[in-house]
Nucleic acid binder design. Structure first.
Lengths: 191, 191
DNA sequence: GCAACCATGTAACGTGTTACATGATTAC
DNA sequence: GTAATCATGTAACACGTTACATGGTTGC
C-alpha cells in the first residue's frame, strides 16, 4: 500500500522522505496516513528494487531526494490499473491517482466498480427491508436503535458512493461530448 | 479491536469461535472482518485474562462455548464508553453496540463526535472552496478531475455521516418526548 | 457415500505504529 | 538564542491475514 502511495506522489516530481509525509497528509490524509516507521523502510526497499533512485543533495545536509524511475512508474501504473475493490480505502487511493490511468482502462474499472456498488446497494436494501419489517413486530424497537442504525449507515454510505461515482462518470462523458463539439466547430470553421 | 468485537457479541449470549465469525460477518461485516487466525488466539487470550470462560460442551465433539464473564463485561463497557474517534471504523463498531451504553454517557459521546464531524466538515468546505477557485484558473482542469473528485468524496462522506448522526440523535430525542407524554397521560388517567 | 457445513487451531508472513534517538535549518 | 520546522532513521511492538492441517456432523 505505502509503496504505491509513495510512487504515486513521486509521479509529480522528486521528494524527500519528510516531504512525502507532509504531502501525503495534505492530499490523501483524509483516508490514508503514513508514519516514518513505515515510510523510510519503504523508501529503502523501493530504492533497492530500483523503482526509485536517491540523490544525496548535499554532502553535509543529510537530505535525500527520491526520484521516480521507469521501473517504479511501471509498477505504479500496474497497481493503478488493477480492478477496484472496496478494501481498506484502497479504491479511494486509486481514484486520487486515476488521472494517470489510461482512459479506456479507467472507464472499464469505474464501470465495474459502479456495478458492484449497485449490487451491494441492492443486497443491503433487501436486508434492510426484512430487518425493518422484523423491527415493527418488536415490542421495544428503541432497545435496538443503534444496532439498527448502523444498517442505515451502511445503506447511506453506499448510496453516497454510488451517487458520487455516477456524477463523476457523467462529468467525464459530458466533457467528451463537449470536446467532440469543439472539434466539429474547429473543422467547420467557415460555417 | 477484535477483543471488543468478540466481547460485544458475547453480550448477547455464549458462542463458539466458529459461530462468532459468522455472527461478525452477518452483523458488522460491512466494515469489520475477522479471520480465524486472529479470532482463536484472541479467544485464548481473553479466556486467560478471565474476561470470558469456556465450556467444552461435549467430550467427543471438540466444540467450545465461550461465555461472557463479569470482568469481560466491565472491559467491554469501558471501551464502549471511551470517546469516539474516526479511526479505522472503530466508531461504527461502537455505534453498533451503543444500545449497551448508559444513556447519559452515550449522549455525551455522540454530541462530541457530532461536533468534531461538523468541524471537519467546515475545514474541508474551506479547503474545497480554495481548491475550486484555483481550479477555475487552470487551463486544463480535466487533467486533475480525479484528484479533485476525491476531495468532493470526502466532503460528501462527512455530509452523509453528519446527517446520519443528526437524524439518529433527533430520533432519540423524539422518543424521549413521547415517553414523557406517555408518562404524563398515565399520571392524569382520570382527565 | 459424499458434499456442505460446522469446528478448532497454528506458523509464517505482511504491514503498520509508537517511541526513541539524533541533528540541521530557518524565522523571529 | 531559541523555538519551530525540516530531516533521517531504528527497534520493539501490535495486529491482522493467508495458508495449512485436521476432523466431526448433517442432509440428501
Amino acid at each position: 500500500m505505502i509503496d504505491n502511495v509513495i510512487l504515486g506522489i513521486l509521479m509529480e516530481g522528486p521528494q524527500t522522505g519528510y516531504g512525502l509525509k507532509s504531502t501525503i497528509e495534505q492530499s490523501v490524509g483524509f483516508f490514508y496516513t503514513a508514519s516514518y516507521g513505515s515510510l523510510y523502510p519503504a523508501l529503502k526497499r523501493l530504492a533497492e528494487q530500483g523503482a526509485i533512485s536517491l540523490v544525496e543533495t548535499d554532502g553535509t545536509k543529510n537530505k535525500k531526494l527520491y526520484t521516480m524511475e521507469t521501473a517504479g512508474r511501471k509498477q505504479f501504473l500496474e497497481w493503478l490499473g488493477e480492478p477496484l475493490t472496496r478494501n481498506r480505502n484502497e479504491h479511494l487511493l486509486k481514484f486520487f491517482f486515476y488521472d494517470y490511468l489510461e482512459e479506456s482502462l479507467r472507464k472499464e474499472r469505474l464501470a465495474a466498480f459502479h456495478g458492484s456498488l449497485r449490487e451491494e446497494l441492492g443486497r443491503l436494501a433487501v436486508v434492510k427491508q426484512i430487518v425493518d419489517k422484523e423491527t415493527e413486530a418488536l415490542e421495544n424497537p428503541e432497545d435496538y436503535r443503534y444496532r439498527l442504525s448502523v444498517l442505515t449507515y451502511g445503506f447511506r454510505y453506499l448510496e453516497m458512493a454510488e451517487r458520487w461515482l455516477g456524477d463523476l462518470r457523467e462529468k467525464e462523458l459530458k466533457n467528451e461530448y463537449n470536446a467532440d463539439q469543439d472539434a466539429a466547430v474547429e473543422e467547420n470553421h467557415d460555417e
